[in-house]
């Protein structure tokens, strides 16, 4: 069952003025229940604009988007959608505002109208999920934490709401490799344990290749490619996005460009090495 269905979605900034800029152009694809979808694209390709359609912050200029089966053109539905779709913005640590980490996490839960006890358990659970010690942090101010810790608190504040769909906009931007890996592991674990649908946006495909079941490549507001990660990588017409890809896949792309009969749908370095070995042996 499709949990999000996007049909011919088009969206422009400043419509009908001289500043009009088409951010999304005739986008169509579906997101299945329980899958891990990666959206990849360069800066300005419309990734952030697209995902704000998922929880009703934006709505299409033309075309439709159905979230959990209902059209987001319905304003009442749109306004309630935050309870079903969690959205972690880019640099979410810039949105922290409460006096303590506990209140920060509890903010969304209180807006959901949960009772005190439930809020208490969920806050603890979410903090543990992102690898923070609830006892130690509950009463400290979020502004006193390091950048990486603030990021984790911000992500936890969405995880605590336990929505059916979790959307994250470049959650690893600006973090060191260790911090990035930690956030990504947290998300994957959370998805598997809670059976939620996850949409992860990134300009760096490396982190999506192993995590995502399927990939959408956005290019200048259009869908450049869409399908299972392996299929997307195996496509022929991806070469003009190749700066997005990791080195070992770029090598395969290059060889293919030079006429080698090689399968570029390789997820890991080992797979790529095996494929190279196979082709070399066969005299490809």
């Amino acid at each position: 069952m499709s949990i999000i269905e996007i049909c011919d979605l088009t969206y422009s900034y400043n419509p009908h003025t001289s500043f009009e800029k088409k951010a999304l152009d005739n986008i169509s694809f579906t997101i299945e229940k329980g899958e891990f979808l990666g959206i990849v694209g360069t800066n300005g390709s419309g990734k952030s604009t697209l995902i704000q359609h998922f929880n009703g912050l934006l709505w299409p200029e033309s075309g439709n988007i159905f979230v959990l089966g209902r059209n987001t053109r319905d304003k009442n539905y749109r306004d309630q959608l935050w309870k079903k779709v969690g959205l972690v913005f880019q640099f979410p640590e810039q949105q922290l505002f409460e006096a303590t980490v506990f209140d920060e996490l509890a903010y969304g839960l209180r807006n959901m109208g949960l009772n005190k006890q439930e809020i208490d358990t969920r806050v603890n659970e979410a903090l543990e999920n992102v690898g923070l010690d609830p006892e130690q942090l509950r009463t400290s101010s979020p502004f006193c934490l390091s950048g990486g810790m603030m990021r984790r608190v911000a992500v936890a504040s969405i995880l605590a709401m336990k929505q059916e769909i979790l959307v994250l906009d470049e959650p690893t931007a600006g973090l060191d490799p260790e911090g990035s890996a930690h956030i990504l592991q947290t998300i994957k674990k959370y998805q598997q344990e809670n059976k939620v649908t996850v949409v992860l946006v990134s300009h760096c495909i490396n982190e999506l290749i192993l995590l995502a079941d399927r990939l959408v490549v956005l290019d200048n507001g259009k869908v450049g490619a869409w399908g299972s990660t392996r299929d997307v990588l195996a496509q022929d017409d991806l070469q003009h996005y190749d700066r997005l890809f990791p080195d070992y896949i770029r090598i395969l792309f290059d060889l293919k460009k030079h006429g080698w009969k090689i399968n570029t749908g390789m997820l890991t370095v080992e797979e790529a090495a095996n494929e190279l070995g196979r082709v070399l042996k066969g005299g490809g």
Partner: peptide, 18 residues
């Protein structure tokens, strides 16, 4: 621009702006 982004982010956490 920043105020708009933050507003949207808080809306995503159910901030009762209306």
């Amino acid at each position: 621009e920043e105020a708009e982004t933050i507003t949207r982010a808080q809306k995503s956490r159910g901030a009762p702006f209306t």
